[in-house]
Design a protein around this nucleic acid. Structure first.
Length: 650
DNA sequence: TTAGGGTTAG
């Protein structure tokens, strides 16, 4: 029997098909192996198809040592193994052997090489092989299109897709459509997204769940959640990834509450959440800043035994920090051995300390991290610089920036944004502007935005105008920048300029974003707009604000009328201040919660808290003996006994 | 005797 290599090969393949490569190998070893490559190829194929990479490569080496020549059947399997583990150097050696043995231009070997280089992220090497190929089929084209997409070269990916249709005369199938949709998603090109969707409908690709899922992700990343939802609703065979894609689509577009609503529907539908779902939904809670929902989701994750890995733990800690409960985040961090944490865990805590104004603690944690031998990455430095900025630790921040360069890390735009923010807030607006001028690349809207904010805080109209000019050019539709500049003009009573900007906004159809504050206690959530008239208890709330103002005035408070950016009478200004959404929310909290409970009043505001409210909350915390925690658009403020954790520096 | 391309989160 052993004399027939074909029969032996069939048995080896059978063993392999039944998932028993060990028996296959025993049989292989028992056979007197000839110099014929056939049986070797069969055994290598068995290992490669089982995903046993080491075994494949070892057997390949043994084959070479025994003087058996590999051929066009050997290389595709060996290359497949290299691809599966991203073993670039091994793959390149095998490529060399294929050249030496004269099998490089075999179509199967070529295709395997393209695939290997693509999977190892060596896109250009893959392209060189691809260009030399004598015959290319749809799979080869798709492999190369996907390789570009995966290495974030969306334009190259789409260019190749068009070449495939025009020069190659090939039509895409659903697999190609998935990669092309991902490439369009990377570019965020809403117009092309529609055309890919239409193409997929025409060709019936939407029956493939992979295509539906990638189109949902594509629309979401192009800012078109409505169409993503439409595709999602029409999908017949939704799987876990469909739900997750739609959930994260809402998150990406700042619509976290809709993500949570969809999550409820997901549970009703019977679809089973997985750890990715948990990760997405926990970050929705973090975005909303709802401690109640965050805790509820944390319990859900524990009870549903989803399996909590470090990534999910990091997201949970991040959620607690962003929902104002830094203590729980710290407790979680300290309750686990530091060897269990990865660099993101440290980053989460450093940024958590930062957003709550504990700059020194953030720096301490950074030292500890380095003592533990954990290498910081660019996110570590973003978190650190932002922590220094919030705490006004200028010298420390400058040192971090230098440390970063010493570690051969090139500062990115976000690091410059933090530096401009840090210098600008501290009053070094000119120095911040100099830094922008020295930047190796062009400043983006975040960098100029940080400068504009600094100009608003310190009343620098001249530099503010320069920042605004750049911003109006870069982001002509971003309302916030018009508002900031108009606030700068208003603060120096340049009402004509204010009017001009207002007209400009009007002609572009832009509206000032409405201020909105949310207060949460127990299961209750209440929202207030500026001058809210819709809350069922708003009369009582205004009465409470009035009483608080009287008490505050007796304690020395005087309204900061400069916070009213309208050209109106002083008396009206004072009244306008009492209608700010965050004041209404805090007053409601005082009315509804028991001071004896020791629970803080937790308010989240979508925009930056105003100076007058900030001052008022310090008085209220002292008068009412309450802790007030406010999360504004930028950071946390913890008011207690007449002062704020930000030390009036924000 | 042969193979190869795909979706979500961080």
């Amino acid at each position: 029997m052993w004399e027939s290599p074909h029969l032996s090969a069939q048995i080896i393949i059978k063993y392999s098909k039944f998932g028993d490569p060990v028996s296959a190998r025993s049989l292989f070893d028992a056979i007197v192996v000839s110099s014929n490559s056939f049986l070797w190829n069969t055994m290598i194929r068995a290992y490669a198809n089982e995903g046993l990479c080491t075994e494949t490569l070892e057997l390949y080496l043994l084959m070479r040592r025994k003087g058996v020549g590999p051929n066009n059947y050997t290389f595709p399997f060996v290359l497949k193994s290299c691809a599966s583990r991203s073993l670039v150097s091994e793959g390149k050696l095998v490529h060399g052997e294929a050249i030496r043995t004269g099998f490089e231009s075999d179509v199967y070997v070529e295709a395997a090489l393209v695939d290997m280089y693509a999977k190892c992220g060596q896109t250009d090497d893959g392209r060189r092989v691809f260009d030399r190929m004598s015959k290319r089929d749809l799979v080869c084209w798709t492999a190369m299109i996907t390789a570009y997409e995966k290495s974030e070269r969306a334009n190259d990916s789409l260019m190749l897709f068009h070449q495939m249709q025009e020069k190659g005369g090939l039509a895409a199938d659903s697999v190609t459509a998935v990669s092309v949709a991902s490439a369009v998603a990377q570019l965020g090109d809403a117009k092309r997204a529609r055309s890919i969707h239409a193409h997929s409908i025409r060709n019936g690709f939407l029956e493939d769940v992979f295509v539906g899922n990638s189109i949902i992700a594509m629309y979401s990343k192009c800012g078109n959640v409505e169409d993503a939802r439409l595709v999602f609703n029409l999908m017949e065979g939704k799987d876990g990834i469909s739900w997750n894609s739609m959930l994260s689509g809402y998150n990406e577009n700042g619509r976290a509450s809709e993500a949570l609503l969809l999550f409820e529907q997901m549970q009703v539908s019977g679809a089973k959440p997985n750890p990715v779902t948990a990760l997405i939904v926990i970050s929705s809670c973090a975005y909303l800043g709802s401690l109640y929902l965050g805790k509820k989701m944390h319990n859900f994750i524990i009870n549903s035994r989803l399996g909590i890995d470090t990534t999910l733990l990091n997201a949970i800690m991040d959620m607690y920090a962003k929902c104002g409960d830094l203590d729980t985040a710290v407790q979680m961090f300290n309750s686990i051995l530091s060897s269990e944490w990865n660099v993101s865990s440290w980053n989460v805590m450093i940024s958590g300390y930062g957003m709550h104004g504990h700059g020194q603690e953030a720096l301490k944690l950074f030292s500890q991290m380095q003592e533990e031998g954990v290498e910081p990455n660019h996110i570590t430095f973003t978190s650190l610089l932002s922590a220094c900025s919030h705490a006004g630790l200028i010298e420390e921040g400058k040192k971090c920036f230098e440390d970063m360069k010493k570690l051969s890390m090139i500062p990115e735009l976000k690091h410059y944004t933090c530096m401009v923010d840090m210098l600008g807030r501290a009053g070094f607006v000119e120095e911040a502007f100099e830094l922008i001028k020295e930047m190796p690349s062009e400043a983006n809207d975040s960098v100029w935005g940080a400068l504009l904010l600094a100009c608003k805080i310190h009343g620098n109209t001249e530099l503010g105008e320069i920042a605004a000019k750049n911003l109006f050019h870069l982001e002509p539709e971003h309302t916030g920048y018009y508002v900031l500049m108009s606030n700068i003009y208003a603060a120096s009573s340049k009402w004509q300029e204010v009017g001009r900007l207002r007209e400009d906004m009007k002609s572009r159809g832009l509206k000032k974003p409405a201020a909105f504050s949310v207060i949460e206690f127990g299961k209750e959530v209440h929202g207030f707009h500026t001058a809210d008239q819709t809350h069922p208890e708003c009369r009582e709330v205004y009465k409470m604000v009035g009483e608080l103002v009287i008490k505050m005035k007796m304690a020395g408070y005087s309204p900061d009328l400069s916070c009213v950016l309208h050209d109106v009478e002083e008396e009206d200004k004072e009244h306008i201040l009492t209608t700010h959404s965050e004041k209404l929310a805090v007053a409601f909290g005082i009315m509804k919660t028991d001071s004896r409970s020791g629970m803080p009043i937790r308010v989240t505001k979508n925009l930056r808290v105003c100076n007058d409210c900030h001052s008022a909350f310090k008085f209220i915390s002292s008068i009412c003996g309450r802790k007030i925690v406010v999360r504004d658009g930028n950071r946390f403020h913890h008011f207690q006994a007449g002062s704020c954790s930000c030390k009036d520096y924000w």
